[in-house]
Design a protein around this nucleic acid. Structure first.
Length: 191
DNA sequence: CGAATGATATACT
DNA sequence: GTATATCATTCGA
């Protein structure tokens, strides 16, 4: 079943981040359905988190969408090449978000491989935040899209992830964030 | 290991 | 308005 607004609007972004493991992420663009199981996430705790774009309450045209209500997509371009897909959580004006770092493709494999310019599925097909977006066809055009609509959404298909299957650790690529870089806000599960 | 690549934020004129 | 530094990364050698 599709995840409802109440899943996203809860106040603990770290908890939401952890619970996203094992959920399915789907996109449907131009009639092509693609999706897979989320296997890796990172939490970005808004104003108190130096690694977040919204640290200290910074509010710009780009980060504006992070101040939306939970259940909104935040997509932005990183390193000039990669589209990174995030899920906004919490209430309006609280700029929390979860970065989807890795997905295991399951639905629409052919479309995914075509987008990734690959012929066979391998570990790197959607094994990083940039490749996840590319595999599912997400670009910065989709920033601000509601996850309750029919373009991008999440589903719980009853996959149960045990606590002891989850590994928490420091986030990737945020060395500039000082001590916040070492917070255990990254979660992943081996499947 | 290192180059690629462009939007964005910030600091200027 | 223009300039420049900076990135929540990936891929190929």
């Amino acid at each position: 079943m599709k995840l409802e607004k109440e899943f996203y609007t809860r106040s603990d972004v770290v908890l939401v981040s952890r619970e996203l493991l094992g959920k399915y992420l789907f996109t449907r663009f131009e009639g092509r359905l693609t999706g897979g199981i989320i296997t890796e996430t990172e939490a970005y705790a808004g104003v108190t988190d130096r690694a977040s774009h919204a640290y200290g309450g910074r509010r710009t045209k780009r980060t504006e969408v992070m101040y939306s209500e939970g259940g909104t997509a935040y997509v932005y371009l990183c390193y000039g090449i990669h589209h990174l897909f995030n899920i906004v959580t919490n209430k309006p004006d609280v700029p929390h978000a979860v970065l989807i770092r890795a997905v295991k493709p399951e639905i629409g494999i052919e479309t995914i491989l075509e987008r990734r310019k690959q012929t066979v599925l391998h570990a790197k097909t959607a094994g990083g935040p940039g490749t996840v977006s590319q595999a599912l066809g997400i670009t910065t055009r989709h920033t601000g899209v509601s996850l309750l609509g029919n373009e991008i959404w999440l589903e719980d298909r009853g996959v149960l992830v045990m606590d002891d299957e989850i590994t928490a650790g420091p986030r990737i690529g945020v060395d500039y964030a000082g001590k916040d870089a070492r917070l255990p806000y990254r979660f992943f599960v081996r499947l």
